[in-house]
Amino acid sequence: MFWLHLRNELWKLFGKKRTYIGFGMFLLAQNAMLLAFRFTRWQQDLERLLEGNGYLAREFISALTVAVIMLIPQILLLMPLYTTLVGGDLVAKEAEDGTLRMILSRPISRLRLLTVKWLAGALFALSLVLVLGATAVLCARLWFPWKGMFVFAPGQAFAVLSSEAGLQRYLLAHVFLGMNAVTMLSLAFLFSCFNMKPAAATILALSYLFVNLVLESIPFFDRYEVWLLPHHFRCWLRVFDSPIPWWEILQSQLVLLGANATAFILGAVGFQVRDFKT
């Protein structure tokens, strides 16, 4: 029955057109960025940076390099937007439409219902990240050769890797990107479990992220950055370090796992005590 309920949630989720907005927007954004990279000074700036550090630019301006360049802003801005959009809908939209009341007249426990909803949402978040990663590298490959990988994120990562090592790290990074996406979805899901509109749940979750980003940019909060989510969200970039700082990555993953569990438990408590009435 659990799998049947999960299948239902996936039908509901992937039957909606708005679920696909994120996938479509990622494709659009990636192509826009590719054009910008190819036809503006962006590519030349990167080449100068590489050559300034003693590397041959033509060996590292590759599909993998450009894919990561495209991922960084999309993961920071677009991914939270589309995961919270779906996360905010998971419970609140059904409550608003009245279908939740129909389900709750059935012999299913509220906890079971929430669990399958969250799982379906998590599967959506993971699929979004996988599609994002795959399309980024495929689109980049259309314009750029398959060569070595160069990763540069100011203050966070600087790595030069062979294409094989680069691909491995790129794939590994998606495991942690997946965790980021699920965490943002869980935040929106938490708010969605309370009596509010779906848009309000999405906005609250995004606000939480943006407040974290603002706090992080204030020097006073440097010493408290481990308490802020974006610090842990960036651990996907650490996989490009050599050697990979596994302990730091594990710590961040545990923090994100804790954030997910807390969001789910708080949401479940709120949902459990709620009255559902027209």
Partner: peptide, 8 residues
């Protein structure tokens, strides 16, 4: 969908 919440 609705019926599955009771029984398949």
């Amino acid at each position: 969908i609705f019926s599955s919440y009771t029984a398949p």
